[in-house]
């Protein structure tokens, strides 16, 4: 689905279920650095057929959304809040990694726009290894390889994908390789320079769900704890053993169930 925000074309996947004539609550799924809507392929269509208008968004200059890429988490969260304004209603947010910081900031700073928030692969800070940043800035394929390598838990490096025939690591790497030149570097810098995560968490008053991988090397499990401690609203924490940063790909079935339960009850 395409629509316009601030005069620019925005694209999102809806699970092939149109929004027209529907009044179901809207769930916006926000991808991470260097990725696009398709990281949510195991959740979007499911939510769209279970009582929600699902919108797995392509952030600016990602997937099929018009650029340029936004350079800070605050800008990204403002942009997400505009989606709420566009549809004229509050929205549920589901974010992964950079998308999780974006959802967190939006929930803490655009309270009137957000019904609930679900965070996957998140930390109070997201430092980026300088060699990863350097490779991303240089559009070197090594950046995609590093994220793929660090992004999946040890078990899931070998696969055992619930989706028959698909390679988890192969899919992640191909997706990041497809990112427009320069965009991954902008994304990573936005993550590493963001310092308002705990403050945003303290401001949140909507229900929040954490879906966290025990083997997450990009945002280690312990990095999420300051956020969990800072949140005073209703919170649910689900830890996934033997799982890395790409929780929604590595454990799609459980993530679907937990997301549906959370947005249904919020």
């Amino acid at each position: 689905m395409f629509f316009s925000l601030d005069g620019k074309q925005v694209h999102g996947a809806t699970g092939a279920v149109g929004f027209e004539g529907r009044s179901d609550p809207i769930v916006v799924l926000i991808h991470g650095a260097g990725m696009d809507r398709t990281v949510w392929s195991q959740q979007t269509r499911f939510l769209a057929h279970h009582g929600f208008r699902a919108l797995a968004i392509d952030l600016p200059d990602h997937g099929k959304s018009e650029g340029p890429a936004l350079e800070s988490i605050a800008d990204l969260s403002d942009w997400i809040a505009e989606i709420s304004n566009h549809f004229g209603e509050k929205i549920h947010l589901v974010g992964h990694s950079m998308g999780a910081l974006t959802a967190l900031h939006a929930a803490g700073n655009h309270k009137d726009s957000i019904s609930s928030v679900s965070l996957l692969g998140v930390g109070a800070t997201m430092p980026v290894h300088p060699e990863l940043q350097e490779a991303a800035d240089a559009n070197d394929v090594k950046a995609a390889q590093l994220i793929t390598s660090w992004g999946h838990g040890t078990k899931h490096h070998l696969g055992n994908n619930p989706t028959p025939g698909l390679s988890m690591t192969g899919g992640t790497q191909a997706l990041i390789e497809s990112t427009a030149r320069g965009v991954l570097g902008v994304d990573l810098l936005a993550c590493s320079s963001y310092e308002e995560a705990v403050e945003s968490a303290e401001n949140i008053d909507c229900p929040i769900l954490f879906l966290l991988g025990s083997e997450d090397k990009m945002t280690p499990r312990k990095a999420a704890q300051p956020l969990i401690d800072a949140i005073s609203s209703e919170k649910t924490i689900v830890d996934f053993p033997s799982t890395g940063h790409m929780v929604m790909i590595e454990e799609p079935d459980l993530v679907r169930q937990k997301l549906l339960a959370h947005v249904t009850s919020s």
């Binding site: 696969g159 055992n160 994908n161 028959p164 025939g165 698909l166 390679s167 192969g170 899919g171």
Partner: peptide, 20 residues
């Protein structure tokens, strides 16, 4: 799809560096 066949599929995808 079949679980045994799926192992072979994922293994070949991995060895070739493909997505599936």
């Amino acid at each position: 799809s079949n679980p045994t066949v799926a192992v072979l599929e994922e293994r070949l995808a991995s060895l070739e560096g493909g997505v599936g």
